[in-house]
Amino acid sequence: MPFAAITYDIKPGCEAELAEIFGGFRRVTSDRVRDAGGQDAGRILATAVFLRDDTLVRVIEYEGDLDAVARHMASQPGVREVERKLKPYLTRPRDTDTVEGFVATFRRSLLRTVAQISVRDVPAAS
């Protein structure tokens, strides 16, 4: 399963506030991701958020099409709420109020995967 990581440039010194914002995160309404035609395009398997100083990173484990995953996230009430609450803590504004803005920001914030290793990629020993 692939992972994606997106970054947020944040003001230092507000770690407690950010932890509170993500601590109250509402899960997506469904792990199933659909494309524009309503067909299955993937799943969101897990997410994690990491924070240090002025960098926050959200890691997403997913199956399927990453653009469809970003579009799905953009329409989720919990994701929209977190993005709204983060605005005062950002050093660089993020245009996430629309699906198109969210997807463009997602792509711009995406870290390049340089390595990914999982026990799921290795055949089970007999």
Results as ranks from 00 to 15, higher is better:
Ile6Cys: 09
Met73Gly: 01
Asp67Ser: 03
His72Glu: 04
Ala46Pro: 00
Asp97His: 05
Asp97Tyr: 08
Pro88Lys: 10
Gly64Phe: 12
Ala48Phe: 02
Ala19Met: 10
Gly42Phe: 12
Val99Tyr: 01
Asp31Pro: 06
Gly64Pro: 03
Phe106Gly: 07
Ala48Val: 10
Ser109Tyr: 13
Ile44Lys: 00
Glu17Trp: 09
Tyr8Arg: 02
Gly101Asn: 11
Leu110Ile: 11
Ala46Glu: 06
Val49Ser: 08
Met1Val: 07
Asp121Ala: 02
Ala5Pro: 06
Ala115Leu: 11
Asp97Asn: 09
Arg84Gly: 12
Gly78Pro: 03
Ser30Thr: 13
Ile10Leu: 05
Thr55Met: 13
Leu45Cys: 07
Phe102Pro: 05
Ala115Glu: 13
Phe106Ile: 02
Val114His: 12
Ala70Gln: 05
Arg32Ile: 04
Val33Cys: 15
Asp31Glu: 02
Arg43Ala: 08
Tyr89Phe: 14
Glu100Ile: 12
Asp54Gln: 13
Thr96Glu: 07
Phe22Gly: 01
Ile10Val: 15
Tyr8Ser: 00
Leu86Tyr: 12
Arg27Ser: 13
Arg92Cys: 03
Val33Arg: 12
Thr96Pro: 10
Thr113Tyr: 04
Val82Tyr: 04
Leu90Lys: 09
Thr7Leu: 12
Ala124Tyr: 03
Ala104Glu: 13
Glu61Phe: 05
Ile60Met: 15
Thr7Cys: 05
Phe50Ile: 14
